[in-house]
Amino acid sequence: MSDLESLEAEQKWQGRRFLNDRLDWNLLRTYLVIGQEKSISRAAARLFITQSAVSQSLKRLEEQLECTLILRRGPRFDLSPAGEEVLRIAEEIYGNVSRLAATLKNPLDDVVGKVRLLSISQVQSALYDDFLTEFHRAHPRVELEVEVMRSSDIQSSLNQKTATAGLGLCRFPQAKLEQRRLMRQRYAFFCGKRHRLFGQRRLPLEALQGENFVSFTSDQIGGNLSPLTVFRDQQGFTGKIVASSSSFEEIRRLIIAGYGIGCLPEHLVDIDLHNGLIWRLPPAEGVVDVDVFLMWNREQRMNRAESVFIESFQSLLGCMEV
């Protein structure tokens, strides 16, 4: 090796040796979110900054590390081998920082503020319950207000910026709303113990064609549960809608009372099935899967408590998707 080559190798080694002295750790945090979201736009929404700011942070980090982190393929991109390794290291770093913050936590530094959360009724999710437990433990001075309402009203309130976030159904993307899937519900047909089909086994789907229905008000065409109406129409069902409500509890009550058959989320009626209050009807695989989303307005200015709430919830859902 020549003296010039030796000098260049020494300079390169010295540069990497002192990388930790000049590396902007905020850039690494931004890159971590880019890697987790696999999208510049979603990373910007999660960090509450512009896409341009995210792209500039990525460029600066690549310059500091002197390597390419992402490989662009049109609107999409993949992480380079170096990018994969940097992402792994970033995850380790921020995991350690989180544990350090919890260890040295000072009550005077707690996040303070109010979070207004809108939700549909009967959101049964162990993941959601665990998140609320951990969030309150980490930020006991944040006041949480939860109001139950219909999905359409939740979307309207978020568009009007009158709430922090919402948990509800969202059949079609909303221009101003970000959304992350919390859970998936499978809807199936049931009848109550007073209904003539109760207890009948091996029923063909055709046996339901003339039965009257209890219906959610949102299963009309264009509503969040419109796939239920589409299914009935496709199967040639001719029964009438004899009762309707926006409330799960009232739909359940009317089905048990024998008004007609109706669709309910499978996981919410296990106890009723066990207690003999309702009976599962065909088709055996259920009718349709419907997602429940965490939603918020990307254009809304958040207080510190709201920002921490949404970012913490997103991080949890991101881990669930991996």
Rank of each mutant, 00 (worst) to 15 (best):
I261P: 01
N224T: 06
Q300N: 11
V292Q: 10
N224G: 09
R301L: 08
G236C: 01
S226R: 01
N303T: 12
I278A: 07
C263P: 01
I255H: 10
D270V: 14
R304N: 13
I278N: 04
S218V: 01
G239Y: 10
C263F: 09
R301S: 09
H274Y: 06
L225H: 13
L277R: 04
A305G: 03
V287S: 02
S215K: 09
A257H: 06
E249T: 06
V230K: 08
V287F: 05
S245V: 01
E285H: 13
E250T: 14
N275M: 10
D272C: 00
D219S: 15
V242W: 05
V242F: 06
F293I: 06
D289K: 13
I261D: 09
H274R: 13
I255G: 07
I255L: 09
I278M: 06
D233F: 02
P283Y: 12
L228F: 10
P283R: 05
R252Q: 12
K240H: 08
R232N: 08
S218G: 10
I251H: 07
G236A: 04
S244W: 06
D270N: 12
S247W: 06
V269M: 05
R253Y: 14
F231G: 02
L294A: 12
P283N: 07
E250I: 14
P283G: 05
A284H: 08
L294N: 11
I271K: 10
I255R: 10
I256Y: 12
G262V: 06
Q220Y: 11
L294K: 15
L273W: 00
L294V: 13
E266H: 07
Q235Y: 03
E249V: 08
R301Q: 09
R232A: 10
G260T: 07
F216C: 02
Q234V: 06
P227D: 02
R298S: 04
I241D: 02
L268F: 07
M295S: 05
R232C: 06
R252E: 11
Q234M: 10
P283V: 08
